[in-house]
């Protein structure tokens, strides 16, 4: 990330605060995500997930998308994590430890993840290594809402139906009969 700072400094508009925040939040996110997928305690995993999600919300603010950030906090941190906690409680099975995954499986997963990381990282560095991101002012929420209800109305409707279907589906799947 120092490379990013240096590049910004070279252009003369050093946004120290933004970059410092970015690096700090990114570090927290990566660490939390890592803990989330490695910790043995299921509840702790959910709490680490909260940190990742909150960090993502912070990144959205850095990117000027305030509305997405607020929604992220409301929906993810507010609703989805609670849903996860309920799921953990209802499935009681292992309030505590997730049984250690077999070593073989972990190695396999790590290899695949690293492979993916190399490919995507390489592609990104190759394609966007000097693309600069200038964010002058936050994106007004009215723009987002206008776009949702005019240009992307079909997608919006589709998502609405999807949510309805998921609602019904969840009830049908989970009910006791």
């Amino acid at each position: 990330m120092t490379g990013a700072l240096a590049a910004a400094a070279a252009d003369g508009d050093l946004l120290v605060a933004q970059n410092v925040f970015f690096v700090a939040i990114a570090a927290v996110m990566v660490f939390s995500a890592f803990r989330c997928v490695t910790t043995r305690n299921v509840v702790h995993a959910a709490l680490w997930l909260v940190l990742v999600l909150a960090g993502a919300a912070a990144q959205f603010i850095l990117l000027g998308s305030e509305f997405v950030a607020v929604t992220q906090v409301l929906v993810y941190v507010g609703a989805i994590v609670v849903l996860f906690l309920f799921g953990i409680m209802l499935t009681r099975a292992s309030m505590g430890d997730d049984e250690t995954a077999s070593g073989e499986k972990r190695v396999m997963a790590a290899v695949v993840a690293v492979l993916l990381g190399l490919v995507t990282g390489g592609a990104l560095i190759e394609s966007f290594s000097d693309t600069r991101l200038v964010i002058n002012e936050p994106q007004p929420t009215s723009l987002v809402s206008d776009a949702i209800f005019s240009q992307y109305i079909i997608a919006f409707e589709a998502v609405s139906v999807l949510l309805l279907a998921a609602l019904i589906g969840a009830i049908v799947v989970a009910r006791k009969d």
């Binding site: 396999m108 290899v111 695949v112 492979l115 993916l116 190399l118 490919v119 995507t120 390489g122 592609a123």
Partner: peptide
Amino acid sequence: AILFAAAAVLAGVFI
């Protein structure tokens, strides 16, 4: 795992 690995390999080849 096979799916992701295959996707990664194919993407690499593509790049």
